[in-house]
Design a protein around this nucleic acid. Structure first.
Length: 348
DNA sequence: CAGTCGTGGCG
DNA sequence: TCGCCAAGACT
């Protein structure tokens, strides 16, 4: 199972590399803080979604020391809308660890021990920021290599084998001379040529050396294990507003789903819909004239789907009960995760 | 290992 | 409309 020459990919990359907000265009030494931040933001998140958020995050936390010094709640708020909020908690914890150490570890092995840095991110930061000869194996790289080798074993079972195989590129002098560029070349190849559905094999620098392409099965690889169906769950939430335009929010428990994020107070999420009589006891302030707003807010999570009802009430002055806080509506929207913004949209 | 953990875009 | 997918990590 020979690997194709790295030089062909690097030559393609030198002509076709994407210009991205988190990628230096002047060829200078990448800043480890920026590389790390971009890699964490890009975990399971599209380049298009990360672009504007990357610059905004850096404007608020320009250095890793600034990030380490910030309250966790400020980091969570800056992350609002990006999803996978454990990333923000781990990012903050990692910043504090690195600040305490004085600087980033320079090897993948050492980076791997930091919070929120797994095998992929450790290799990516080591290769891009520190020129360590390792190949980060993300979804792009797994797809490219699965096709090159015509690997028929479905993911995720094939992941260890693909990750091991791709390290073989570092026996190639051309790849070892430019580990960061080689990694990013694989990303760009996967994102623009060796795409999931209909790969543009005619434009591939490795066309003719790809076993899947030779066999005509490239669009069927990598194979994936079947996924389970997502159940439907139901919730009811409460929008309490005062005459000054403040609304009442509650912070969720520090770990788990939407951990550490703000939400509109509400019922737990369960399989059965909530009747009004069942929901009202969960109101943040009992006895108010709660009225159910028309419509249902829907939101899809990774492993379940959610339908939510919204009850609203207004009082003259909001005096937040223990465990809650009052916020101006605009501040609330920017601090809330998308699922809660969708709920708030029911109120116009 | 398999389940948990968000969101937006696209075919 | 809906399933799939994206520079994965953690338990």
């Amino acid at each position: 199972m020979p690997l194709p020459p790295a030089a062909a990919l690097l030559a393609w990359y030198d002509r076709h590399r994407r210009t991205l907000p988190f990628r230096r265009s002047d060829g200078g030494r990448p800043d480890p803080y920026r590389v790390w931040l971009s890699e964490v933001m890009l975990q399971q998140t599209t380049v298009a979604a990360v672009g504007p958020r990357f610059e905004r995050f850096l404007a608020r936390f320009p250095t890793i020391e600034a990030l380490a010094a910030a309250p966790e709640a400020a980091v969570m708020e800056e992350w609002a809308g990006l999803g996978y909020y454990a990333r923000a908690r781990n990012l903050h914890a990692c910043a504090r660890a690195v600040a305490a150490m004085g600087s980033f570890p320079r090897t993948a092995e050492a980076l791997r021990t930091l919070p929120g840095i797994g095998a992929y991110t450790a290799a990516a930061v080591a290769a891009i920021a520190f020129d360590e000869p390792v190949v980060p194996a993300d979804g792009n790289v797994e797809r490219v290599v699965a096709r090159l080798l015509a690997e028929e074993t479905p993911l995720p079972a094939a992941k260890p084998r693909l990750s091991a195989a791709v390290q073989g590129f570092m026996a190639d002098d051309a790849a070892r001379a430019r580990p960061g560029d080689f990694a990013q070349a694989l990303f760009d190849l996967g994102a623009t040529i060796c795409t999931p559905k209909t790969p543009a094999c005619a434009l591939c620098p490795w066309r003719g050396e790809c076993l899947a392409q030779q066999r005509g099965i490239q669009a069927d690889l990598p194979r994936k294990s079947p996924k389970r169906a997502r159940p439907l769950r139901h919730g009811a939430h409460f929008l309490l507003t005062d005459t000054a335009g403040h609304l009442l929010l509650r912070r969720r428990p520090p770990r788990g789903l939407l951990g550490g994020m703000l939400e509109l107070p509400g019922t737990p999420w369960r399989d059965a819909p909530w009747t009004e009589a069942e929901a009202l006891p969960h109101a943040p302030i009992p006895g108010l004239a709660w009225r159910r707003l028309p419509g249902i807010a829907r939101h899809g999570f990774t492993h379940f789907e959610l339908e939510m009802q919204l009850y609203a009430a207004t009082i003259p002055h909001l005096d937040p009960p223990e465990g809650t806080e009052a916020r101006d509506r605009n501040d609330a929207v920017s601090a809330l995760p998308t699922v809660m913004r969708r709920l708030l949209a029911l109120a116009g």
